[in-house]
Amino acid sequence: MSAGGWAGALLVAGLVALALAGDDVSGYRFDAQDTEHALEGPSAAHWMGADALGRDLFARVAEGGRVSLLVAIGSTAVAMLIGIVYGAVSGYVGGRLDGWMMRAVDAVYSLPDVLVIVLLTEVFHGVLDAVPDLYRRLLALVLALGLVGWVSVARLVRGLILQAREEAWVEAARAVGVRGPRMLLRHILPNVSGPILVTATLRVPSAILAESIVSFIGLGIQPPFSSWGVLASDGFAAMRSYPHLILFPGLAILVSLFALHLLGESLRERLDPRQRS
């Protein structure tokens, strides 16, 4: 892997560690209020400053990161799962079914992302009655983001499988009697796992970005949880007097996206044979 890739991987690892251990690193609980120090800028005591209730912004960014990363990874998993199954079936079965399935993908593809995410989030939030209130919104967002993201995965997987079907080793496997799902699961999918992994890595940053956008316009993550997008949105309202409130959540999104892209691109160079130059 390239130097950039290692740098990306390291940054990602660092961010995940921070998100997991935020409270312990800063020494403040993310919801501990201290009105004495409300709205103070960065200092030795509060590395990123404090918010309107005197909560430590570093701890809040770490806590927000936990939610942002969780939603992004969860939704990527949903998107990958649906996309791989759909794309594999479409590509492997082929024929008329393939045609219809791809027509459906085209229709979904022409839906504007953010609109659909917003709508789906509201719908899932209403429909998932059985889930405890506290987690309903989170789950709704995960599902909504996942349901929007699977389309490109399905296209990619179908393309890979169509390509693989023509190759000599598949012919060889078929000659010794390997057929159907066994062929797909045991032989073809493992062989195209590289590009799929790359796509998964690159889906995570776009999910983080989409979540932050939806949360910024007030339709995403809701209290008591906050995410980087929520923190940035709160900070935006006070950016004239207290720029640190938007600076640090904004930086968190920027650095995580940057790191994940670095990692993804370098993985792509390594794992995706079509891209190797």
Binding site: A232, I253, L254, L257, F258, H261, L262
Partner: peptide, 10 residues
């Protein structure tokens, strides 16, 4: 990479 990573509100 920076351009792809910076959210519009930031």
């Amino acid at each position: 990479l920076l351009g792809i990573s910076v959210p519009s509100f930031v």
